[in-house]
Simulated scan of single mutants.
Amino acid sequence: METILTIRKLNKRFNKYVHAVKDVSFEIHRGNVYGILGPNGSGKSTTLGIVLNVVNKTSGDFEWFGGKVATHDALKKVGAIIERPNFYPYMTAKENLELVCKIKGTSFEKVDEKLDLVGLLERKNDKFRTYSLGMKQRLAIASALLNDPEILILDEPTNGLDPQGIRQIRDIIKVIASQGTTILLASHLLDEVEKVCSHVVVLRKGEMLYQGTVHNMLDQNSFFELQASDLSQLKSVLSNHAEIDRLEEQDGKLLVYPKKEMAASELNAYLFQNNIVLEHLVKRKNSLEEQFLELTNNN
């Protein structure tokens, strides 16, 4: 799979007290949706600023497209929104995008296509000042897509939007990704990353705590919810299982946390052999929120 962006041991210090990015390393591969997840102040925006050449790194390295092209030329293949949408208020959406086309040296033919993609084609002749915040954000995405970039970078794309605006942006991201564009977005919203991203990098205070697929992150520490006629007997039998990490009682059920991945059939067979017939057995996964809290609380 082609590597679009490689980051190696990236560091950024703003002064001797603020170490915003600490030895961060990860890769972005073509065709995926990556989320950089972390609370405010975790180094997400600084990392994006460095790879977009708007923030100077302190040390470390990064390269676009396997280092085959210089950063300046590589960035021509990148679409990015890292600040609030900024267009001329008394110009229409169409006029604003045509101006961007002139700056980027792109054909005007792309304007209607991208406006349609973000659901603004019918409002293309309305002035930018009449747009809601969500519409302004969608116009910014259309603008970033005018040169058909190979990767789209978004910094907190749903920040400040109402629920409807958030859903519209997420739906647009999914459509863009389905068309083959690689996406890298920074967010502090767990729900956002869980719903639209295939891969995630978790940052806290500039340090990387996790990188990998969202699926694998959710698969870590899956657990079982069990119920039997004699809960104390169930608890006693499971306490002797070498692969069980811990047990918790909750609302008349027993939550069972294995030390490693375990099939429901394996657990059920073990209990049956020990003369316990379950009334209830559900294998559950931690939500991304639970996983994120566990990661950040343990570091």
Rank of each mutant, 00 (worst) to 15 (best):
residue 1 M to T: 13
residue 2 E to W: 03
residue 2 E to A: 12
residue 6 T to G: 05
residue 7 I to Q: 02
residue 7 I to C: 06
residue 7 I to N: 08
residue 8 R to W: 00
residue 17 Y to V: 00
residue 22 K to D: 12
residue 25 S to L: 01
residue 26 F to M: 03
residue 38 G to S: 15
residue 39 P to M: 12
residue 46 T to E: 10
residue 46 T to Y: 09
residue 49 G to T: 08
residue 51 V to G: 14
residue 57 K to M: 14
residue 66 G to H: 14
residue 66 G to P: 12
residue 68 K to A: 08
residue 71 T to M: 05
residue 73 D to V: 14
residue 82 I to W: 04
residue 85 P to R: 08
residue 87 F to V: 05
residue 90 Y to E: 15
residue 96 N to M: 01
residue 97 L to H: 05
residue 97 L to V: 05
residue 105 G to Y: 15
residue 107 S to L: 09
residue 109 E to I: 03
residue 109 E to H: 06
residue 112 D to F: 04
residue 114 K to F: 05
residue 114 K to I: 04
residue 114 K to A: 02
residue 122 E to T: 13
residue 123 R to Q: 11
residue 124 K to T: 06
residue 127 K to C: 08
residue 127 K to Q: 10
residue 128 F to Q: 04
residue 129 R to A: 12
residue 132 S to G: 03
residue 132 S to D: 02
residue 133 L to Y: 07
residue 133 L to D: 06
residue 138 R to H: 12
residue 140 A to C: 15
residue 140 A to Y: 15
residue 144 A to S: 09
residue 151 I to G: 01
residue 151 I to S: 05
residue 155 D to M: 02
residue 157 P to I: 00
residue 161 L to Q: 00
residue 164 Q to W: 00
residue 167 R to Q: 09
residue 168 Q to P: 01
residue 170 R to H: 06
residue 170 R to Y: 08
residue 178 S to Q: 14
residue 179 Q to P: 05
residue 182 T to Y: 10
residue 184 L to S: 02
residue 187 S to N: 08
residue 188 H to W: 06
residue 189 L to R: 04
residue 189 L to V: 12
residue 190 L to P: 01
residue 190 L to G: 03
residue 192 E to Y: 11
residue 192 E to C: 15
residue 196 V to A: 11
residue 200 V to I: 11
residue 208 M to P: 08
residue 210 Y to N: 07
residue 210 Y to S: 10
residue 211 Q to D: 08
residue 215 H to M: 01
residue 223 F to T: 02
residue 225 E to I: 09
residue 231 L to R: 01
residue 234 L to D: 15
residue 235 K to N: 03
residue 235 K to W: 01
residue 238 L to C: 05
residue 240 N to F: 04
residue 240 N to L: 12
residue 245 D to Q: 07
residue 247 L to R: 05
residue 250 Q to I: 04
residue 254 L to R: 09
residue 255 L to N: 04
residue 255 L to E: 07
residue 257 Y to Q: 06
residue 259 K to H: 03
residue 261 E to W: 10
residue 266 E to W: 02
residue 267 L to F: 03
residue 268 N to P: 04
residue 270 Y to L: 03
residue 272 F to R: 09
residue 278 L to P: 03
residue 279 E to N: 14
residue 286 N to P: 05
residue 289 E to P: 10
residue 296 T to M: 06
residue 296 T to E: 13
residue 297 N to Q: 13
